[in-house]
């Protein structure tokens, strides 16, 4: 699962651009991930310029 590190995001939308599942919604000052649609590819984690996103193991 992808975790958003709170208060770190700049809402640039780079993660939205690479997300193959179209499951990230970035607004002027908010970011939301639809975990039901997320396919855990972690591309958003890799591309984020400022390391806002992290992949966490659900187990």
């Amino acid at each position: 699962m992808i975790n958003i590190i709170e208060n770190k995001c700049d809402f640039c939308g780079t993660c939205v651009g690479v997300c193959p599942a179209n499951c990230i919604d970035v607004d002027e000052a908010s970011i939301l991930i639809n975990h039901k649609k997320c396919i855990d590819c972690d591309l958003c984690v890799y591309i984020c310029p400022i390391e806002v996103l992290e992949s966490i193991n659900e187990a």
Partner: peptide
């Protein structure tokens, strides 16, 4: 609507950027 475009995706167009073609900038 820019790099985080969703209009095209809602209409079924492929605007998603391959990770190798995306520059992560600061």
């Amino acid at each position: 609507d820019g790099v985080d475009s969703r209009v095209g995706r809602w209409a079924g167009l492929k605007t998603t950027v391959k990770i190798r073609d995306m520059e992560s900038c600061m």
